[in-house]
Amino acid sequence: MVQRGSKVRILRPESYWFQDVGTVASVDQSGIKYPVIVRFEKVNYSGINTNNFAEDELVEVEA
């Protein structure tokens, strides 16, 4: 279970941040499909630095 402030590695192959490390900004408990919002240092092609992920697409590298 990841929690706010954890450092996580992204396992979603189609993601711009695949294999990159980001910080968990928040975790939604309402039961949505992609409840974990992760914030990154670098921006993607659209200038965005956050994205939603499912918990099984993340691996915690640092608490």
Rank of each mutant, 00 (worst) to 15 (best):
D56P: 04
N52I: 05
M1S: 13
S30P: 05
R4Y: 05
Y16D: 05
Q3R: 14
E55C: 14
I37E: 14
A54V: 03
E60C: 13
E60Q: 12
K33H: 06
P35V: 12
V2I: 15
N51I: 07
W17T: 01
D28Y: 05
V24N: 02
R12G: 02
I48R: 09
V24S: 00
V59M: 13
R4S: 10
I10H: 02
K42I: 08
Q19R: 10
L58K: 00
T23D: 03
I10T: 01
Y16S: 02
V2E: 00
V43A: 14
V43P: 15
V61H: 03
I10W: 04
R9P: 01
F18G: 00
E62K: 11
M1L: 11
D20C: 14
E62D: 12
L58M: 06
P35Y: 11
L58E: 01
T50L: 09
Y16P: 06
G47T: 01
Y34N: 06
K33E: 10
V8T: 01
Y34V: 03
D56R: 07
F18Q: 02
D28L: 13
E60F: 10
A63S: 12
I37R: 14
Q19I: 07
E62I: 10
V24F: 03
Y45W: 13
Q19T: 05
F18P: 00
S30E: 05
L58Q: 00
E41G: 07
L58W: 02
E55W: 15
G22A: 01
K42P: 01
N52V: 06
S6E: 02
W17F: 04
V59H: 07
T23F: 08
N49P: 03
Y16A: 01
R9C: 12
S26Q: 10
P35N: 13
Q3G: 08
I32L: 10
G31M: 09
G5A: 03
W17H: 01
N44R: 04
V36Q: 00
Q19M: 15
I32E: 09
F18Y: 13
Q29W: 11
M1W: 15
K7V: 10
D28M: 12
G47K: 04
E60P: 13
E41V: 09
E62M: 11
I48W: 08
N51P: 01
R9E: 02
P35K: 11
T23Q: 05
E41S: 09
D28G: 07
E57I: 02
S6R: 08
S6H: 07
R9I: 08
V36W: 08
K33M: 11
S30Y: 06
R39H: 09
K7N: 04
I37G: 04
E55A: 13
E62N: 11
R4F: 05
S30L: 06
E41P: 06
A54E: 06
R4G: 04
Q19S: 07
R39N: 08
R39A: 09
V59P: 01
T23S: 04
D28T: 06
Y45F: 13
F53Q: 00
E60D: 05
P13M: 12
S6G: 04
F40P: 00
L58P: 01
I32W: 06
S26P: 01
T23N: 04
P13A: 13
F53M: 01
K7H: 08
V21P: 01
E14F: 08
N51S: 15
K7T: 08
M1R: 15
I10L: 05
Q19Y: 08
M1G: 14
V2Q: 04
E55I: 14
V2W: 12
E55V: 14
V27Y: 10
D28E: 09
D56G: 06
Q19N: 14
V24W: 02
S30D: 05
I48E: 15
D28F: 06
G31E: 10
E14V: 06
D56M: 06
K42S: 12
N52E: 08
V21G: 01
E55L: 15
F53N: 03
Y34H: 09
V38H: 00
G5M: 04
L11W: 06
R9W: 03
D56A: 08
I37S: 13
Q29K: 13
W17E: 00
K42V: 07
D28H: 06
Q3C: 12
S6C: 14
D56W: 15
F40C: 03
D28V: 08
E14M: 08
Q29Y: 14
P35L: 11
Q29P: 12
E41R: 09
I37L: 15
V8Q: 01
R39I: 14
F53G: 01
A63P: 13
E41Y: 08
E55T: 12
N52R: 12
Q29R: 14
I48C: 15
Q3M: 11
Q3P: 04
E14A: 10
V61K: 03
L58H: 01
V8A: 01
Q3I: 10
D28K: 05
K42M: 07
V8L: 00
I48V: 13
N44G: 05
T50W: 15
N52S: 14
Y45M: 15
S15Y: 02
V61W: 06
M1I: 11
G47F: 05
G31Y: 09
V61G: 03
V2C: 13
V36T: 00
N52A: 15
G22I: 06
E60T: 13
K33W: 05
E57A: 03
W17N: 02
S30R: 09
V36M: 04
V27F: 11
S30A: 07
E55G: 06
S26N: 10
T23L: 07
T50C: 15
G31D: 12
I48A: 13
V24Y: 03
S30K: 06
S46W: 15
A63D: 13
I37M: 15
S46K: 13
Q3L: 09
W17Q: 00
G47S: 04
A54Q: 06
S15P: 01
M1V: 11
M1P: 11
V27P: 01
N51R: 04
S26G: 13
D20Y: 10
A63C: 13
N49F: 09
L11C: 10
R4K: 13
N52M: 09
R12T: 06
P13G: 05
K42Y: 08
N49M: 06
I32N: 10
R4W: 05
E57V: 02
E62W: 11
A54K: 08
S15E: 03
E41N: 10
V21A: 02
G22D: 03
Q29T: 14
E55N: 11
V38W: 00
S15A: 04
E41K: 08
A54R: 12
F53W: 03
V38G: 00
R12Q: 06
S46Q: 15
T50H: 10
V61R: 02
R12P: 06
E57M: 03
V24D: 01
Y45R: 14
N44H: 12
V38E: 00
V36S: 00
V38S: 00
V24E: 01
F18W: 06
F18I: 04
R4E: 12
